[in-house]
Each structure stands twice: as structure tokens, then as C-alpha cells.
Design a protein around this nucleic acid. Structure first.
Lengths: 135, 135
DNA sequence: CCATTTAAGACCGTTTTTGTCCTTTTTACT
DNA sequence: AGTAAAAAGGACAAAAACGGTCTTAAATGG
């Protein structure tokens, strides 16, 4: 359970690869795809969504490509993961606006809340810089 | 991301309902299903898998039904969740036998290891007794 | 034997995942 | 201006997972 999807894994691989480049250097999706072993068109989609969120910047046309939208130290693993996988929600009842109708579920509610908080805290504490320079 | 499936939620609802009963009392699936709002045949499947693991005991025929396989205090939320959802694996690379081929993935590896450990610890710390008596 | 209740497995529709493919737009270079 | 190189965007599709249902068999008590 609680498994990251391929998309999530690909996203991390791809953006970490960008983080390893010299700041300001523009990289082709094709290069990232090959280097990380991710299907190119799939990775392109992922990077497009990153671009919309400002996680990466993109340039079209000849000489185009991608680079980080801000310094690697300012991008957390949580931001990357949530960008592709959505918010960290261990249980549906955490989604709702405070309405957890069933009582027996509600005793579990605070447990999931803790799980959510712990995961978020861990992922918040790791930046692309950390990951790029090998911990 | 990281969301519990319906099955997982149903499983918790169902077994917590059992945990709320007087010890030794045998309960019908139909009763549990109705009380918790879970589809009966689906819940039956879940309880069957619980029975195989000893989380519950079952009796067939007239007067049959289910009850906890051991005291509620001896069943953790983690055991319940893993019984239906499988082991807690935030990332595929944690499954493998130490082989995390890609280097950039491997810098992420210890992070997922921590996530795995934290979730496990939280769920280990909660028993059905806790959940049954309302935290 | 008969009604009841779980056990086991086959089956099935829907949604999500994991991509591919094609067209369009933007850009740089000649 | 024309062309080649990229990313942007959308449609499409196979495969897997999810969320169940249904049927038949086996056990049990009366």
C-alpha cells in the first residue's frame, strides 16, 4: 500500500536529473529521458505539468528545453511528489471538510492525520539539492 | 497519493466493529455489513482473508459468524491494514532485494525508507482496543 | 435432511495507470 | 521567408487495479 506510481518515480528521476545540471543550463527532454530510463513522451507530459507550477522553466523551438524553475535548494521533494500525485491523503476521510460521518472511522481519523503529517514533514525536509548531490 | 483503498477502509470499519463487541460474541457478516455500511459480499471476502491470517476466527453454519482471533489489544492497525493492502511500500525500490540500480533514485531511497518506518511505527502504535473504545 | 452461514473461486464493469501518437505553436538559425 | 527543432496540447488505447457480484461448495446445528 501507499505506493508511489511510475509517474511519481519518473517525475523524481527527471527533475533530480535537472537539479544535477549546472544552474541555468537548458536540457532536452530526450536527454533526460534517455539518461533516466523514462519513456520520453511520458516524461514530456510530466515536465509540462511541472512547468505550469513553476517547478521548471521551458523553452520551445531550436535550442529549447527545460531547467529548474528555481534553485534546487528551494524545491522540496514534497512539492515534486504532490505536483504529480496530488496531495498526501492517506485516507479519504481527510479530504472532506471536517465531515467524517461514521463514528468508528472517526476514531481512526486522527491516526491518518498523524501519518499525513509525518510524511509531509519528511518530504518537506528534503530538497532537490540534497538529492542531486547524493544526500 | 498514498491513499487507502475502499477495501482498506471497509476492513478497518468491519474489524473495529468486531472489536467493539463483547469478547467471545459471534457476529454475522450481514450485521457488520449493515452496521458499517459496507457491501456484504465484499466484506465477507475481507473477513475471509482475515480468518486465514488469524486476525479473526470464523464459524460456519447456523449460529456461525465471526469474532476477533485474539484480544483487541493484540491486533494493531498496521496488521489490519497490511492484511488487506499488503506491506507498506512507499516506493517500488524498497521492495527489491537491495538493488536500486539508478543512482539518482538511490539518493531518494533512504527518504522512502524513513517514510516507511514512520508510517509503520504510527500504525504499530494503535490497537483495535484503542480504536474500539474511541481513542 | 434442511436451513443457515462461511469458503472459495469465477466473473465483470469501471476507473486509473501508463503510456503512444498526432497536430499545433514557438523559436532559432540560415 | 523558410526550415528545422523543441515543447504544448489533445486524443486515443492497452493493461492493470479497483470494487464489487454471483454461484457453488462445505460445514454446522436442529
Amino acid at each position: 500500500m501507499m505506493e508511489l506510481t511510475r509517474k511519481g518515480e519518473y517525475a523524481i528521476r527527471g527533475i533530480v536529473y535537472l537539479a544535477k545540471q549546472a544552474p541555468g543550463k537548458v536540457i532536452l527532454v530526450s536527454e533526460v529521458a534517455e539518461a533516466t530510463g523514462v519513456p520520453q513522451t511520458f516524461l514530456a507530459k510530466i515536465f509540462q505539468s511541472f512547468a505550469k507550477l513553476g517547478l521548471v522553466n521551458s523553452f520551445r523551438g531550436t535550442g529549447g528545453g527545460f531547467l529548474l524553475g528555481r534553485p534546487a535548494a528551494k524545491i522540496t521533494l514534497r512539492q515534486v511528489v504532490e505536483a504529480v500525485e496530488g496531495p498526501i491523503i492517506p485516507n479519504r476521510c481527510l479530504t472532506e471538510d471536517g465531515s467524517c460521518i461514521r463514528e468508528n472511522i472517526c476514531t481512526v481519523h486522527p491516526v491518518w492525520r498523524r501519518v499525513q503529517g509525518e510524511i509531509a514533514a519528511i518530504l518537506d525536509g528534503v530538497t532537490l539539492e540534497d538529492l542531486a548531490r547524493g544526500e
